[in-house]
């Protein structure tokens, strides 16, 4: 009984500590993107107005990054090219969160990434005083490494639909293709009912095909029906035993 009490107490404290985090985590989805002003390569714009023109995928990067930025953006570029083959229409906006980045830096970055469909890719900077407003609104944090002068940060993909509402934020080092496909669907207001990566080893009735945006019947379904088949065989076997003499018709 002691164990029960102890764990009840433990769980209570655990719960208390969890709910304390609530405010910090609160919360970035289903809100309008902040109306900060951005400087694109050829024009100045309001981010909100820009996003309301078309569904947009926003990623944050900075030009002198020696870490994740370039490899990540290249992967995003290739993945996007694939999505475009399937007629997904959206814009990609890469904005810098580094105060030091200039128009020229972003121009160079655009050249390095070299997207196929240049008309749908936009590079730019945020108004210096509004960088914090933006990063806070999407829950993006970074730290300055004083030795190297580099900014430590996770890669981030922010999906914004045509209403300028943030519908998905994926923030981790190993963003998979499936997750990106889910973002593509979400920004076109196609509901994605699944938020976890398909774990290869798990057995389920349906798997979510992130690319097609559909559930497909999976072999886990068999688990629900094999018992009935097994029992049919078993019962047939049981009833084929020899009848007691004299009771057979």
């Amino acid at each position: 009984m002691k164990a029960a009490t102890l764990s009840a107490v433990l769980i209570f404290f655990l719960a208390a500590s969890v709910s304390a985090q609530t405010d910090e985590e609160k919360k970035f989805l289903y809100r309008e993107v902040p109306d900060v002003s951005i400087q694109l390569l050829n024009r100045r714009a309001s981010l909100l107005a820009f996003c309301k023109e078309e569904p947009t995928i926003i990623s944050l990067a900075y030009s002198r990054c020696a870490g994740i930025c370039y490899p990540f953006l290249l992967t995003l570029r290739d993945n996007l090219a694939e999505a475009e083959k399937e007629e997904k229409k959206f814009r990609v906006l890469i904005i810098s969160f580094d105060e030091k980045d200039t128009q020229e830096n972003m121009q160079t970055m655009a050249g390095a990434i070299h997207p196929q469909n240049t008309s749908r890719w936009f590079f730019g900077t945020i108004e210096r005083s509004q960088i914090k407003t933006f990063t806070q609104a999407v829950g993006f944090t970074f730290t300055l490494d004083s030795l190297s002068g580099q900014l430590n940060h996770p890669p981030i993909v922010i999906g914004v639909n045509g209403d300028g509402t943030i519908v998905r934020i994926v923030k981790k080092f190993d963003i998979s293709n499936n997750e990106l496909w889910q973002v593509y669907h979400e920004i076109e207001d196609e509901f994605v009912p699944f938020y976890k990566e398909n774990i290869a080893t798990s057995i389920s009735c349906f798997t979510y095909d992130s690319r097609k945006g559909k559930f497909i019947v999976s072999w886990g379904m068999l688990l629900l029906y094999t018992p009935a088949i097994l029992v049919a065989i078993l019962v047939w076997r049981i009833f084929s035993i020899k009848k007691i003499a004299g009771v057979q018709k």
């Binding site: 774990i199 080893t201 798990s202 057995i203 389920s204 009735c205 886990g220 688990l223 629900l224």
Partner: peptide, 17 residues
């Protein structure tokens, strides 16, 4: 016994059948 993660929907179906 392993690191396999089960599917909550399947498990719920199974427990209620």
């Amino acid at each position: 016994a392993s690191s396999v993660v089960n599917d909550a929907l399947l498990m719920k179906n199974l427990v209620f059948v």
